[in-house]
């Protein structure tokens, strides 16, 4: 059986009047890229900070590597690397010096080679001796990841690693995560408020909102093409709906949302839907397929959860 790297049970954090995290439970297995999804303010950062002992839980239990975090903090953290929100480092020190400093803080005695190799991996070897002050956001982010990795931890926690990055930077981080997971067999927890980012890297996904778990599951299932939602917009939705209800597609109908008709189907069925729509003389304005998860996530983030209900 796969080892559980993270096990969170009934985690709650109360800030005065605000319950930032409410009875949250989840687990991360060895080798997972665990996508932690939620809007800004959903409780992702608070949860991650509790996993790194920055914030003390009001109640609940966190186990990492099978050990209680509160009691085995030192042993656990030696094996964790993290980038928490912005990758802030000492601006008056060079990339190399920062890396060396944090390597030592993480309990290792780094060699020059190790440090340079690390900088090489995150693409900063040629800027090793430049002060971080002069770095772009993307370079800082890469250095931050380099720092998270320098002591070769088993678990890597990346909190919103693509925040503030340009598309190239985002792509770089994505590739790095895939490299860490596939080639170096690291367990990674990565949070984001963007489904698209998580979708491309995660093996498991947790969606939280208002501090509570909404969905947890394997990415393969959650992003299953069989669970595609198609959003139709037509010249005359009432007519279109009538036609569809009378057709074999009726069982695929999900609901009607304002100006759109929603169908749930397998991605491979889209061409035949297209053909049938034409045959039914439905004048199509648009046809947008997305994952049911994406659809669901969009609704949460836009705040109208009442329209469709998706059950896990």
């Amino acid at each position: 059986m796969m080892q559980q790297i993270v096990q969170v049970k009934g985690l709650t954090k109360q800030f005065k009047n605000l319950t930032a995290v409410n009875n949250l439970s989840f687990s991360v297995n060895e080798g997972d890229v665990y996508g932690f999804l939620g809007q800004n303010g959903a409780g992702k950062s608070t949860s991650i900070r509790m996993m790194l002992t920055l914030i003390e839980p009001t109640s609940g239990q966190i186990e990492l590597f099978g050990m209680d975090l509160a009691r085995h903090r030192r042993e656990i953290l030696r094996n964790v690397g993290a980038v928490i929100e912005k990758p802030d480092v000492y601006k008056y020190l060079s990339a190399y010096e920062n890396l060396e400093l944090f390597a030592r803080l993480s309990g290792i005695k780094p060699t020059k080679k190790l440090l340079m190799d690390q900088l090489e991996m995150v693409g900063l070897a040629n800027r090793a001796n430049d002060r971080v002050k002069t770095f772009s956001q993307g370079m800082k982010q890469r250095l931050g990841i380099g720092i998270a990795l320098v002591h070769n931890p088993q678990l890597i926690v990346l909190d919103e690693p693509t925040n503030g990055l340009d598309p190239q930077g985002i792509a770089d981080i994505r590739n790095l995560i895939l490299h860490l997971s596939r080639d170096l067999k690291k367990t990674i927890v990565v949070s984001s408020h963007l489904l698209s980012e998580i979708e491309q890297v995660a093996t498991r996904v947790l969606i939280i909102d208002k501090g509570q778990k909404l969905v947890e599951g394997n990415a393969a299932e959650l992003f299953d093409p069989a669970q595609t939602i198609v959003e139709l917009q037509t010249m005359d939705n009432a007519f279109a709906l009538e036609q569809l209800k009378a057709s074999p597609w009726s069982s695929y109908l999900q609901a009607q949302r304002n100006t759109a008709i929603l169908l749930k189907l397998n991605r491979t069925e889209i061409p035949s839907l297209h053909t049938d729509l034409a045959a039914m003389q439905i004048q199509l304005l648009s046809l947008q397929p997305r994952h049911s998860l994406e659809d669901y996530f969009l609704q949460i983030t836009s705040g109208n959860q009442h329209v469709d209900t998706y059950t896990n």
Binding site: R49, L52, T53, L54, R73, R74, E75, I76, L77, R78, V80, A82, I84, E85, K86, D88, V89, Y90, K91, F102, L105, S106, G107, I147
Partner: peptide
């Protein structure tokens, strides 16, 4: 202020 505190605190010492 620099943002390094959270990194420091997530390191393995009390």
């Amino acid at each position: 202020n620099m943002g390094t505190l959270r990194l420091l605190i997530s390191k393995p010492f009390s």
